[in-house]
Nucleic acid binder design. Sequence first.
DNA 1: CGCCGCCTTGACCACCATCAAGTGGAGTGG
DNA 2: CCACTCCACTTGATGGTGGTCAAGGCGGCG
Lengths: 251, 251
Amino acid sequence: MQAPFIAKLEHGASLTDDDRSRLAQIIRDPRPVRRGEDLISEGDAPEDVQLIVDGLACRYKVLRSGRRQVMALLLPGDFCDFQVAILGAMDHSIATISACRVVAIPPSVIEDLSRNYPNVTRALWWASLVDEAVLREWLVTMGGRPADQRLAHLFCELHLRMQVVGRGTASSFDLPVTQEDLADTMGLSVVHVNRSLKRLREMRLIIFARGKLTIINLEELRRFCGFNPNYLHLRKMPEDHRHRTSFTASA
Amino acid sequence: MQAPFIAKLEHGASLTDDDRSRLAQIIRDPRPVRRGEDLISEGDAPEDVQLIVDGLACRYKVLRSGRRQVMALLLPGDFCDFQVAILGAMDHSIATISACRVVAIPPSVIEDLSRNYPNVTRALWWASLVDEAVLREWLVTMGGRPADQRLAHLFCELHLRMQVVGRGTASSFDLPVTQEDLADTMGLSVVHVNRSLKRLREMRLIIFARGKLTIINLEELRRFCGFNPNYLHLRKMPEDHRHRTSFTASA
DNA sequence: CGCCGCCTTGACCACCATCAAGTGGAGTGG
DNA sequence: CCACTCCACTTGATGGTGGTCAAGGCGGCG
């Protein structure tokens, strides 16, 4: 199976074998990170750029009230802090949500890429712009959708993004988050997330249990929350069974 | 007075006089646009990049429910669609909120800038990353703050951004938006925006009337909503009277 | 075995949406 | 100059979504 990082960038530009092998070289020897650790903290100005090779992480801020707001979920193949070199200092923190494997990429490598690998450079630009588009969509979700649709929309998005990096099947994928993580992500209370998940389960749309999400009816789920995948700007979906209702026997 | 566009970019990189005159050349001859018109619509793939020279515009999406969600406010000096060249098609629309003056920048000019003006290129990168940081902060606001603090936080941010582009004084600036615009921006109902503004007024923090925002007590306003300007990544504030409580006689 | 983290459910209440009615200023036309 | 209209703002009444508090269940692990 291709590395998540490369699989994702294929959507951003046409890569050559040369591009691919350079990228593959970068993500050798990732280091393991335990769950719940900060990869970068607010105020840091690290030299290296970090990349999630495996596992789940998040961008977050903590409010005065103690509430933690998650602003992005980082999947395998996602960059942590591509921006910090230009902005000077992190204005938020990044933490692992599950155990992860991470690589730190020194500035010299970034330089090399942007000088000698134009396709890759373009793909990195693309990835950064998609991150921003996702952020905008989350804002729409938070501002305009009720709790159950919020969660449904998040699941639709993660489903596609997971497929892009070759994680999970057409109807299920590992999602090692607690309900509290979901609450912090969607701006809800844990209690209400629990009830909303229950409703989605009763509507036979999804089942979320023990860190695994099973999508019972993808079409219905998408219709329910008005999911339109265009904001992810994917070229073509590898395994997007758009017109085949996937159905899984419940656990 | 310096052009807003240039004033803003000064925060992103050290510009030479040569840089400045090239930029000044770009923003000559803006075209007027009336209030309430789409500059770009979802699905468009325009060649030119548009830049707001004067007035107020917004990024937005419309949900099935009919609700409009504003995802960004574009001030003088802000780009509309720097990203569309790489992403392929707009995943949202941009409309004017007030009468505006706008320039369309052809790709050839962007090419020229990125090839021959490294400082400018860096500054444009910076601007794009700050846009993203603002988006993240809005997400935090929507997810975690009650209505009155949301509005207060927005006002604090706009206050600073307006100062950067030389619009308004230390205690007031033109904000030609309706309460409905604010509602669509903060994910609230018009009625509730109205009540929240009333509360802020009664707390003697701000007065918002007839398209003008007056900040009665900046320190208190910032404290009230927990505003921390670091996410705007400004070098140094030109007129940030941080330790001088500005006070204006009420109208 | 007993603790701990996470999930689950009930009761209660607050924030905020919706519906509805009315005010007031700006522009228009008689 | 005065209706008339339109648009934005304002305020009251009512109800629902979702927050908070509280208690209990369940599985994993030392």
